[in-house]
Amino acid sequence: MQLLVNALIAGSLAALIAGGLAVVYGVLGVFNLALGQLALIGGYTTWWLYQVLHLPLGLSIILGLACGALVTWVTFEIAVRPFFKHHRFLPLVTTIAWSMILDGLILLVFEERPRSILPGLKHIYEFSGIRISLEQGLLILATLVILLSFAYVFHRTSLGRRIRAVVQHEHAALSLGVPAGLLHGFLFVLSGVFAAAGGIFIGIDQSLTPTLAFPLTIKAYAAIIAGGKGNLWGAILFAYVIALLEQLLVGVHWFGAFYVPAGYQQTVALLFIIVILLIKPAGFFGNSSRTA
């Protein structure tokens, strides 16, 4: 059971980032490889506001998210918008370049040392042998609330209908008066806010380091590829599945005989994705056309 909770903690973080990534791929058809850096910027800004300027934690988080949104918008204007209509692989290159620039900026502004938004022990609660900190519980809840409210907007409101219209056929949507360009920017920024929330999550639960960005991006990609490219719910589900696999893999006494060495934790999770792709090349929930 403790393993399940551990998986929820790690999975929530991955789900936030993968969810944002899937939305962007679903609507714009581009991969944003600077997402890990955007997560770090959100986390680091919150750390700076809370630990250096001593603002209240809630305000720091909101401003951290806002800063994440701002930088994501700049990313969109500089590295994605001028390119993605020409070829959908162009932003792959431009966002890699942009991610390196952001890496440099993070080093310059926040220095290379590890930072923790809430250092030290958290408030631990124990329920029938399962130990979870108050902060972790709140983070899991917050992730669920964010994802569910997004689902509500996406499937139950007129804004969501417009987004889905742009996904299905951009030109048809434009001719019906749906501002596709504006929605592109909005969704891209939204994905950055999700990522920034993920970064703040790491900063609260563990610690932030500038080298963390790339592994974060890779994990999120694994989830969206396994879940079916562009399928939001598939990506989120698989973010949790991968986290659970990683936990079960090293945490369970397999067949009562042996433990898998912890060094193989990530390898086996990625192997699992290869197996899924061998069986269903479009991803588990994928189909041939793009959906969001």
Partner: peptide
């Protein structure tokens, strides 16, 4: 006796086993 990848920060599954 467990070995983890460099930079690992999530030791929860191992600590669960340590319990």
């Amino acid at each position: 006796d467990e070995v983890v990848e460099p930079g690992t920060k999530d030791f929860r599954s191992l600590v669960t086993r340590l319990k």
